[in-house]
Simulated assay, not measured.
Amino acid sequence: MKAETAAKKLGILLEAAPEEFREGPITRDELAALMAEPPEWLEKLRREGPHPRTVIAAKLGISNSGLARSGVTDPLTTAEIKALLEAPPAWLVTERATQAEVRAEKIRVSDRDKERAARRSGGSGV
């Protein structure tokens, strides 16, 4: 697989990975080995960053779209993410509230669908 794909699967920013990782294709066995026993460079990237957008969004508790709406385009380090969480700017507060509403709505719809399914299965024998 391409190094870009492997980086996504590992949850790291490709540009921050060592050159030998970025240069060539990565086999599935090599990827499995990296996941099973991550080398120091991989552990450090996961711990300190810089992180890709999906990881930043997850750590901030917002969606990728929310991250884009906020104007955050550059990779962030773990320290930068912690600073945002400690003193959240207005956009982060808004996006986290939006994300909480989305999650609550998903739960509501799921519960509604389960209830409807239970009524259908319970009502078919009557």
Rank of each mutant, 00 (worst) to 15 (best):
K2D: 14
K2T: 02
K2E: 12
K2G: 03
A3P: 04
A3D: 02
A3R: 02
E4P: 05
E4D: 10
E4A: 12
T5E: 15
T5W: 04
A6C: 05
A6P: 03
A6D: 01
A7F: 11
K8E: 12
L10Q: 02
G11K: 04
L13T: 00
L14H: 02
L14F: 01
A16P: 06
A16F: 04
A17Y: 00
E19D: 14
E19I: 07
E20W: 13
E20S: 14
E20D: 15
E20R: 15
F21S: 06
F21N: 09
F21Y: 10
R22S: 06
R22D: 09
R22Y: 03
E23R: 15
E23T: 12
E23V: 10
G24I: 05
P25S: 14
R28C: 03
R28D: 15
L31K: 08
L34E: 10
A36Y: 12
E37I: 00
P38D: 02
P38E: 05
P39R: 08
E40L: 13
E43W: 05
E43R: 15
L45D: 06
L45C: 08
R46T: 08
R46E: 07
R47E: 13
P50C: 09
H51S: 06
H51V: 09
H51A: 08
A57T: 05
K59H: 10
K59A: 11
K59I: 00
K59L: 13
G61N: 09
S65Q: 15
S65F: 00
G66V: 04
G66P: 07
G66R: 03
L67K: 01
L67Y: 02
L67A: 03
A68K: 13
A68G: 06
A68P: 04
R69Y: 11
S70G: 15
S70Q: 01
S70H: 05
G71N: 09
G71K: 13
D74Y: 05
D74L: 13
D74T: 10
L76Q: 09
L76Y: 08
L76K: 07
T78W: 01
A79V: 10
A79E: 15
I81D: 04
K82F: 08
K82E: 15
A83P: 09
A83M: 01
L84W: 07
L85Q: 13
E86W: 02
P88V: 05
P89T: 07
W91Y: 12
W91H: 13
L92D: 11
V93I: 15
V93G: 06
T94Y: 08
T94W: 03
A97L: 13
A97D: 14
T98D: 08
T98A: 11
A100P: 07
A104G: 09
E105D: 11
E105Y: 12
K106P: 02
K106Q: 12
I107N: 05
V109Y: 00
V109Q: 14
V109P: 05
R112M: 14
R112D: 10
K114Y: 05
A117Y: 01
A118C: 00
R119Q: 10
S121A: 11
S121K: 14
S121G: 04
G122T: 06
G123H: 12
G123R: 13
S124R: 13
V126W: 12
V126C: 03
